[in-house]
Amino acid sequence: MANIIRSAKSGIDWTHNDLYSHPITIHQEDHLLLIFTSQELPQPVIDQELLTILDADNMQQDRNAELIGLLDLAMIRDKGETAVDDFVVELFKVLGYVHRQRLARTRVDLPLLICSEQIYATTDVCILDRSQNDILLLVQEDKRSEPISARAQLVAEAVAAFNKNNARREAMGLSPLVSKVSYFLSWLIG
């Protein structure tokens, strides 16, 4: 394999070549249960109404109707990325992933040093644990309809989040982590 030249570019511009040019290993998990059994995120609790009623107008619970209404908007390509982000944030709330110490954030800029240049990887949505001041989960919408590019963007965000989390640890007098399992979700629009 030829040497691929590395260049400094923001996370949104990463491609599969950037994954190959850095010493990054990706292990894809087909079993989502592994994500949900992590001690950092609780088991999701899903209201039966969400599993049995398809139309938001027929739902009894306002929160469920809002979630399905946001899902409907997110599935329409021309509604833009904010519709997807709004849906994901509400989904995390409904699943119980967001509470006092855990916040869903959108458009978080994460600094990333590449080729001696400071660039940024910007999350679509992430879950931030306030008690540890760590980013626990990242969500990236595939805006280019190319799953490999979405994966590359997620990896850039994960590397940036890992570095930011370690910088916070060091600022608090804690040892930096050598590694961390990161969970990625990619949202593909129809």
Rank of each mutant, 00 (worst) to 15 (best):
D62K: 10
C115G: 00
F184L: 15
T15N: 13
R77K: 13
Y120C: 00
M172V: 03
A160E: 05
H99T: 01
M75P: 00
L71R: 08
H99L: 06
L177F: 07
V139R: 01
E49S: 08
F184S: 09
I135M: 11
K93Y: 08
L174Q: 11
E81Q: 08
R102A: 10
Q48L: 13
G69M: 10
D109L: 04
G11Q: 04
I135Q: 03
D124C: 09
N17A: 13
M1L: 11
H27S: 14
L70W: 03
I68D: 11
D124A: 08
L177A: 10
I26Y: 05
Y97P: 00
V181Q: 14
D72C: 10
S179P: 00
L19R: 04
V155P: 04
P176I: 02
D86Y: 05
A121I: 07
V98P: 02
E49Y: 01
E81I: 02
L112T: 04
S38F: 02
G190P: 15
N166K: 03
P23S: 11
L185W: 09
I68W: 01
L19Y: 04
I119H: 08
V139E: 08
T15M: 13
L110A: 01
A160R: 06
L34E: 15
I127L: 14
L112C: 03
L54E: 15
Q48D: 15
H99N: 13
D129K: 01
C126R: 05
R102S: 12
K79L: 13
L19P: 06
T82D: 14
D30E: 13
D57T: 10
P44T: 01
W187Y: 11
G80C: 08
L174T: 03
E40R: 09
I148D: 15
D30P: 10
L95K: 04
N166T: 02
L137Q: 05
L137N: 03
T82S: 14
I135N: 05
A65V: 05
T52N: 15
N133T: 01
A8Y: 04
L112Y: 00
L34T: 12
S175Q: 12
E117I: 07
I12N: 11
H99G: 08
I12C: 11
Y120G: 00
I35M: 15
A65C: 10
A83I: 03
D18I: 04
R168C: 07
H99C: 11
A74V: 02
M172Y: 07
D55C: 11
I76M: 10
I5Q: 15
E170T: 03
Y97K: 00
T15E: 14
K164C: 13
N166H: 03
Q43N: 10
Q60P: 00
S38K: 02
V98C: 07
E146L: 10
V84E: 10
F162I: 00
R6P: 07
I76C: 08
A161G: 04
I5T: 13
L70P: 05
N166Q: 06
E146C: 07
D85K: 06
F36E: 08
R151V: 09
S182V: 07
T82I: 11
